[in-house]
Nucleic acid binder design. Structure first.
Lengths: 335, 335
DNA sequence: CTGTTAGCGCGTTCAA
DNA sequence: TTGAACGCGCTAACAG
């Protein structure tokens, strides 16, 4: 790998001059520019980002922590953040927490080791204390989907409870009275809030929430299938199912179909998140929209501004979910 | 951010000693270890990976280029590579090519700038020449899903043609004679090879391939829907559809369902890749298995070995796809 | 076992 | 406009 010295030698100038044309400094003669560029091309010179970072005490990188890039929800988030990284000339470093506190902590540390000044963090397992010491160390660190007291201005979250309340109310408005809930088995705030929203909505409309109507599973298709099967196996009576997220809802649809239950004619299903899958599953999934892209972009812009001491962009700290009506919920005519 | 000097000062030792305990050097007294560790903890010291890379002339990083992390196929690939990165104590840097030559080149360059000695590259658009100069510069660069002459030992690919041939033969064996093909509109080798395998299989079994039975679309669900709709709109007669990949197949299933065509009773559908979606779509998708995980892992291990001058692991350079039989293909009884 | 020192590749003074 | 020299944070001899 050629270094700046090799280029300088070949071009017959000093390294300082090479550095100048490299960084488009105005004080570089036209002649230097041509000579240096020629030398760089001939050597296939690629600058060393590490050395540059060390010298400038700043890196053009943006760090992002997600649960798991291979999860479509986080895929969308990564893409949204990458978009703003590209726009602002930054390189995106990605870490995976894999739903484990230790791994989350380690991955954030890796991002910091690599000197990311701006960090967008989606971490649900790591402790508040650990998170706090990191927030203090890195001014450009922003939390996505988590509220940490004392750092409210650097948090962006969704009103999960309200979203789930909306979904459940929609089912009730369609005449459903027996509504089951397919919940995530991960004990994170999202799960509690969404479950809480479902229960609140029932109570608000004079219906009793029953714990036996709640089934748990991993927050993916398979978890949705398993939860549905356990609901069915217990002979529960329900005409609608509200789900923790769309992936589980896809599993619910599959399990109902496998058991000859027609959706939405016999059972209505509503999801949460509005990820890609909800649009091509059949019937198309009625769901609650989680504005991942907008939230991720705002988080990224905020992190970038904070990390470089720039004026802060306007940000929404608590986003409101909305209803997306498709074809998996039907009005209950009789009963 | 505390530096090694701060730690040394606080611990009352030299930076060399700090470096030694940091790197678990055997020549460090128990006393030094305790003192230094205490100082590091007190300062929340996190080493600077850039400085370390510069000093050691080597980084513990593995670079990966994919088309788009938010695509489930690449999500699986990223996860597989991340797995081996974690196992080997490396940090994964990810770049996105977004199906564009310029972006692919730029992303690879970024990875090299950041001094990744090992690179797993999935790039279909960048020119052979550009790729070659990079392969020459970086000995630890491995190509996934592309064959570059002169670098065969650093390429890992799938026999796409054979996979598509397998799929088509399976349909023929089930009695189908009128088989449409839903093809990717991207003009990359995969598309050509898979289409070729379909045509070969038809010819090998005495059937004439008709260009009018081929519909094109973006290689995602929506593309599959559009392609199916155009096939239907043209009134083509077919009893089965072979697809470029599972995402398109999912779109095909959706479009057929929307048009009251039962799968597989009226139309059989076969996919390619065997990604996650194929298992929870209904009917479950019969498809061709692309061993992404195994391929990605081998590519990663090869890149790591090459990049660090270690003995090479055994690798399969051309993987063979296999048939995965589920429920979207039926035997054609009459005609 | 420890400290001093040189240098990794680059940006940035400061003189010239 | 240019080059020499220093330092960024860290590792790796080397000498003690």
């Amino acid at each position: 790998m050629a270094t700046i010295k090799d280029v300088a030698r070949l071009a017959g100038v000093s390294v300082a001059t090479v550095s100048r044309v490299l960084n488009h400094s105005p004080k570089a003669s036209a002649h230097s520019i041509t000579v240096v560029n020629a030398a760089m091309a001939q050597l296939n010179y690629i600058p060393n980002a590490n050395a540059r970072a060390l010298a400038q005490q700043s890196t053009a990188t943006l760090g992002l922590l997600v649960n798991d890039v291979s999860d479509p929800f986080f895929g969308a988030m990564v893409k949204a953040v990458d978009q703003v990284a590209i726009q602002t000339g930054n390189f995106l470093l990605i870490g995976n927490g894999y739903h484990r506190a230790a791994q989350e902590k380690l991955a954030i540390e890796q991002l910091i080791r690599h000197q990311c000044q701006s960090l967008v963090i989606h971490a649900k397992m790591i402790s508040d204390d650990d998170l706090r010491t990191m927030m203090e160390q890195v001014p450009g660190m922003v939390l996505n989907n988590r509220l940490l007291s004392g750092f409210e201005s650097r948090c962006i979250a969704l009103d999960n409870r309200y979203g789930s309340w909306l979904a459940t109310r929609h089912l009730i408005a369609q005449g459903h009275q027996h509504i089951a809930y397919v919940c995530s088995s991960h004990s994170i705030s999202d799960a509690k809030e969404r479950l809480g929203g479902y229960q609140d909505a029932l109570r608000d409309h004079g219906l009793m929430p029953h714990d036996e109507c709640i089934a748990y599973g991993e927050p993916d298709e398979n978890g949705g299938e398993q939860a549905t099967i356990s609901l069915l196996a217990q002979g529960k009576h329900f005409t609608a199912i509200a789900c923790y997220n769309d992936s589980m809802a896809a599993g619910v649809l599959a399990a109902l179909t496998d058991n000859n239950l027609k959706v939405p004619e016999q059972v209505s299903v509503i999801g949460f998140d509005d990820v890609h899958v909800s649009r091509y599953v059949r019937p198309r999934l009625t769901t609650v929209r989680y504005p991942v892209v907008a939230m991720a972009q705002q988080a990224a812009r905020l992190a970038l501004a904070l990390g470089h001491g720039l004026p802060l962009p306007p940000v929404t700290h608590l986003f409101q979910p909305t209803l997306v009506i498709r074809h998996s919920v039907a009005r209950l005519e009789e009963l």
